[in-house]
Design a protein around this nucleic acid. Sequence first.
RNA 1: GCCGGGGUGGCGAAAUUGGCAUACGCAGCGGACUUAAAAUCCGCCGUCCCGCAAGGGACUUGUGGGUUCAAAUCCCACCCCCGGCACCA
Length: 804
Amino acid sequence: MTRYDPQAVEAKWRDHWAETGIYEIDVRAVERPFFNLMMFPYPSAEGLHIGNVFAFTGVDIFGRFTAMQGHDVFEPFGYDAFGIHSENFALKQNTHPMTLIPSNISNFRGQMKQLGMRIDWGHEVDTTDPAYYRWTQWLFLQLFKQGLAEKRSAPVNWCPSCKTVLADEQVIDGRCERCSTEITHRDLEQWFLKITDYTERLLENLDSIDWSPIVKTAQRNWIGRSEGLETSFAVEGTSETLTFFTTRPDTIFGVTFMVLAPEHTLVSQITALEQKDAVDSYVSSAMAKTAIDRQQMERTGVFTGAYATNPLNAERIPIWIGDYVLSTVGTGAIMAVPAHDTRDFDFARKFGLPIKVVVAPPDWSGDDFEEAYTEQGTIVNSGEFNGMASDEASEAIVKKLERDGTGEHKVTYRLRDWLISRQRYWGPPIPIIHCPDCGPVAVPEDQLPVELPYVEEFRPTGTAESPLALVESFVNTTCPECGKNAKRETDVSDTFLDSSWYFLRYPSTSFDDRPFDAELTKKWLPVSNYIGGKEHSVLHLLYSRFITMALHDMGHLPFEEPYERFRAHGVLILEGAKISKSRGNVVNPDDYVASHGADTLRTYLMFSGRYDEGGDFSDKGIEGVYRFLHRAWDLVDRYRRQDGEPELPEEAERLRHRVIRKVTLDVAGLKFNTAIAALMEFSNELQRRPALHATEVRTLLLLLAPFAPYVTEDLWEQIGGEYSIHQQAWPAYDDELAMLLEVEVAVQINGKTRDVINAAAGSDEDVVVELAKQSERVQRYLGERPVVKTIFVPDRLVNFVIKP
RNA sequence: GCCGGGGUGGCGAAAUUGGCAUACGCAGCGGACUUAAAAUCCGCCGUCCCGCAAGGGACUUGUGGGUUCAAAUCCCACCCCCGGCACCA
């Protein structure tokens, strides 16, 4: 009798797999390419955490399953190692990122190998490698040349702690995503990528791509399409007009004032002399507030002394300033309809402005409102539009203004351009040279990469300039166009630019003269299967779609959506809290690999809950899975020592087909927990047998192989299987054989189960009813009472309905 | 506030999408093996009631109502948890 020793088994096969290269594929030669992608991680100093292992294991199981089904599965791995996260950690540790990152990477690589991932290590990607970021810079230049990258002054999110600007997506509830410091605003020159040129396509394609609905919904929300009217009111006594957008054109007769954002460009021009001081001081205090302060629901504002005219009813409309109107939304100005908008209602109440009802609620008595009525209704107090329904009136009002040439139907979006410049050290330098005569000029492509110099003092300066600005040898250069002295751009680009194209690089890592080879790209992309966390719904997943579309339009890619299929996995939490280094609640997977083995950890993580839901991690049940693998070992051990081989009875063969079907369908649908449960049941059943048939043992090992790759490889060898189990065909099943011959049928009286009888599968109603009526228990309940109705569900139940 | 996802034994969770609720596993209890323990194996294990027992009965999927022969599943109202969006005009 031998004993299962995970450490010995795993060490043995880890080496053997590496020697025989069974997970490496010839990206050129193979015939049934399947690109199985996992989200590359940021290689932190602490190593992989349990959440990473959970995520990657699911991808790996799916990859192994797909490979056994005959596909040439390419499963690469890489490191998203640039960015604020790495840099902040390096600062904290007082280590230079250039020394920290390589050791983190080798740690991650070692862990992934331990975990038994079928990674093709011949195609690693490291975003901090000049051989990689050279092409990130190339990508930036292509966008620049298309007019999709531009530097402009804009109010930006500023994190006073990280001392850098942040993209909108990196601001969570007015705080920095990384350090939770309250965000302030600054007006700075920044590089933007014009993702808004692609808004409509990013939104439209969502209808046709095979992605988890939850991610599609998040992207739709983020893009935030809204339809309405854009029009303008003339400012009295000037030649200026105030343009605004509204989704409720039907309420335009209810406008009783207008409100401008404090940053609105016309504020100083229209403010009346006597209000100037009040306006100035309001504006400067509003600008000084943090984002969170400005989100206070307390209504503040000040009258400008100016008036506009509502052209529809010639009413005189006072113009106010208030910080509840955001400069970045719409035009930064609104028509205020206090009767039908809660924000305007509060403002009007506070400053004693009139409230005029123009949309009557269904049972309106004509009284003043106690709160804003924001639903649709019947139009009143609106001249020729009275009596119409809201939607009808909206349409009519837009049409009228369009006829007059003073307004138009418009679609606006919440999505704004992607701010990619960072005033930090740890990123790829933006490859631009600023020439006093020629303006911003692209670094010629043959001079890429613009290498990130080693800088001892890489701490952020806080001056709105990157630490690179202090490195004279880096900054000073000559203009590639006119040869005059010029200065390099010193900002680096956002990490999300690095990750927006890494999947394109994987098949082509051997090329140093192009980012991705056309032929290989055609063969391997778009990505066949991408599995990752939902937390990237609106960041990475939206950016990489945009970059793919842009590259497609420039003729570099034959497709415009990067991922054929995307599935979101759940997030593991720990004792109700998100797992994070800052919380110190990191569970180290290495401990479990050491105590139980990678096979047990993998199988346990997949068994203990739904892959798409994640949940609270606890190791409470890990012993059960450990025992299960031991049982599988002992089962094979017993099989090897048994004398001869029994016949395989039909019932056993049918069971085998049922299990294959169950596991096949479950793994294909990423329902790993129920697949493992089915395998446990199967092995429990086999354990009851006096002797085992080779087919049964082989089936169990093959089905278990994606979950527990090491132990199944070893057992496969023990039973004389051809190396490697991971290169064998996935067992086939036959639907006919997978059917049960005999089924249990519930017999109910008035919907309550009173007995369960056995019947041949597929029996007709009269046969089953006859059997059911023979049951003593059933007869006891039926007695003399007549059956009013009989419900028959084939192979499931009979229900006799009787009068109570 | 809006949009998603969820609430099932002591615990992690299943349930072919309206058809035997609690599969699989953990923990617990009892037993076998052992000098003993570990490991392993076998049995029990939703709650309450009747019964010494075999057994029988009632109830049970966050709460309350409804539809149906039949509801964890569908509908209405409400409570709680998680995620996303949010002064978005």
